[in-house]
């Protein structure tokens, strides 16, 4: 299988007045071509730094990477011809309409007018932007602006798309539209490198995932292989008729609103479900989600604060 991105011992330290922060620490992994690859982790985990390095916006402190076979340090022009990026928190130029902006971006990349218009019209329809195609971007909602940014890069002819938290701020329906467009990009055999802290998004879109935590690569693989690595692959939800003491012998217990959440192995899961049914209490059994895996591996949920503070821009 061809490799779109290959990172070898990538490290990045931001230095600033009074100190430094290690954003990436010896990260190595490959991203196969033609698939959507999910990079997950909390804010400050190193996702955006990884994206900026491989997107040729930032130089690593040490280590290297190849993108589409080209070295990020010495062959950045070759890489830039083949990539497109929606940076985190990016916003469209306010004085353009949706159509003008997408069209302008495509022409800026060197695309001829006829092809730019065709691609623009396709992406506008696909991302549900037809109603606002002639509206100034300054008059769009935050979610619509985000979709315009995503539309710009999806309409491009880039082989590799970098999407840094592309659905942040979107409503569920708009998120689904963006997902559908991303899926279309991979059907066209393009590679998508997606960072997100929505695990459902990563799971729905990505054929492989990498979890970064504090600049370190914690897990890498397909969603199924990641699940297989987890020691406690079942999640049992029980009502509050159970006490924590009754459950601790089965595995780690977390009290949640209206009951308890238990992570356990298959044999113990069967036992507890049978006991619950015998007691007539409510019980639900499911394989662990990525959110649960994150909780087990890292010890706290993905949306619980930042790993560490980093400066916006290095000095």
């Amino acid at each position: 299988m061809a490799t779109a991105v290959s990172a070898q011992h990538l490290s990045k330290t931001y230095t600033y007045r009074g100190g430094s922060t290690q954003a990436l620490d010896d990260v190595s992994f490959d991203i196969p071509a033609g698939e959507t690859y999910g990079l997950i982790g909390r804010n400050g985990a190193g996702k955006t730094t990884f994206l900026r390095i491989t997107g040729t916006l930032l130089l690593p402190s040490s280590g290297t990477a190849t993108v589409l076979g080209y070295d990020i340090r010495t062959e950045e022009r070759e890489i830039r011809r083949r990539i497109a990026m929606v940076p985190q928190e990016s916003r469209p130029l306010y004085f353009a309409t949706t159509e003008q902006l997408i069209d302008g971006y495509l022409r800026m990349r060197g695309m001829d007018g006829t092809e730019a218009r065709r691609r623009r019209n396709d992406v506008i329809d696909e991302l549900g932007l037809a109603d606002v195609r002639r509206r100034l971007v300054s008059r769009l909602s935050g979610g619509q602006r985000r979709r315009v940014m995503v539309a710009m890069v999806l309409a491009s002819d880039a082989e590799l798309l970098f999407l840094d938290e592309p659905t942040t701020g979107l409503d569920p329906l708009a998120r689904r539209e963006v997902w559908s467009a991303i899926q279309r990009a991979t059907r066209e055999r393009r590679t998508v490198l997606l960072t997100t802290h929505y695990l459902d998004e990563a799971e729905a879109l990505s054929s492989r995932l990498a979890l970064l935590e504090g600049g370190h690569l914690r897990i890498e693989g397909t969603p199924d292989s990641i699940r297989a690595r987890v020691q406690l692959p079942y999640r049992v939800t029980l009502d509050s008729s159970w006490s924590v003491d009754e459950l601790t012998s089965f595995g780690p217990v977390t009290s949640v609103v209206g009951g308890h959440l238990l992570f356990t192995r298959e044999k113990e899961a069967r036992e507890i479900v049978q006991s619950a049914l015998a007691r007539g209490s409510r019980v639900a059994l499911a394989p662990v989600s990525l959110e649960d895996i994150f909780l087990q591996l890292v010890g706290r949920p993905l949306d619980e604060g930042e790993v560490t503070e980093k400066p916006e821009e290095p000095e």
Binding site: R52, R80, E89, S90, R91
Partner: peptide
């Protein structure tokens, strides 16, 4: 403004535009 607020320069850098 384009670099810091809109991140438009990042969009441009990660593209064929020199």
């Amino acid at each position: 403004h384009y670099k810091q607020d809109l991140k438009f320069q990042d969009v441009v850098v990660a593209s064929p535009v020199e």
